[in-house]
Computed example of a mutant assay.
Amino acid sequence: MADVYARLEELGLRIPPVVPPVAAYVPAVQTGNHVYVSGQLPLVDGKLPATGLVGADVTPEQAKDLARQAAINVLAAVESLVGLDRVVKIVKIVGFVASAPGFTGQPGVVNGASELFGEVFGEAGKHARSAVGVSALPLDTPVEIEAIVEIA
């Protein structure tokens, strides 16, 4: 992997401190050559930029930006545990989208996270994924992103 820190700088991205858990879990766990990242919310400086259901309270475009922020928080969890320079591959992500009745644009929302991983890691950022609509998420967040990451 090329220097991920240089790539982050080129993109103008700052990896924040890892978001503290909001319940009884840890942000990420390493087992073997994989890091499993708990669902990350799009918190910025400890606050959610928006709350509510996508397709009612939050537009799909806003939600896509929130998914991008949640993906940045995934990177923060990996950085805090093992360092981003050890990432070999983003293996899989799961995006949860708090969806208004009838909203079916979950894949477009989760693209915010998928595109971020591609920008940062290039080919190694391409991954398997699921985009799941749910009725509610913790703290009334519109999106949550979890990941499985292969490391060296």
Rank of each mutant, 00 (worst) to 15 (best):
G55V: 06
G83M: 08
V109D: 02
A147P: 00
A136G: 04
E61H: 04
S114T: 15
K126W: 10
A77W: 02
V29K: 07
A124Y: 09
S135K: 06
D3Y: 07
A63D: 06
D45N: 13
V143A: 05
Y25M: 14
A124M: 12
V143M: 10
V132R: 08
A71F: 05
E146Q: 13
K92V: 03
A131F: 01
N73P: 03
P21E: 03
A63Q: 06
P42M: 00
F96K: 14
V88W: 02
A71D: 03
P138S: 00
A113S: 06
D140I: 00
V58L: 06
G55P: 04
L84V: 12
A124R: 11
A28C: 08
T59H: 03
V78T: 08
A131Y: 03
A28I: 08
V82I: 14
V143R: 02
A147K: 00
G52F: 03
G83E: 03
P17Y: 04
S135N: 06
G133N: 10
L66S: 02
S80M: 05
V29F: 05
E79Y: 01
V94K: 13
A24R: 15
P49N: 03
V37Q: 01
V74E: 01
V143T: 09
V35G: 04
E119Q: 15
G55N: 05
R68P: 06
G133V: 07
N33F: 06
R14C: 07
V82N: 12
D3G: 12
L139M: 13
A24T: 14
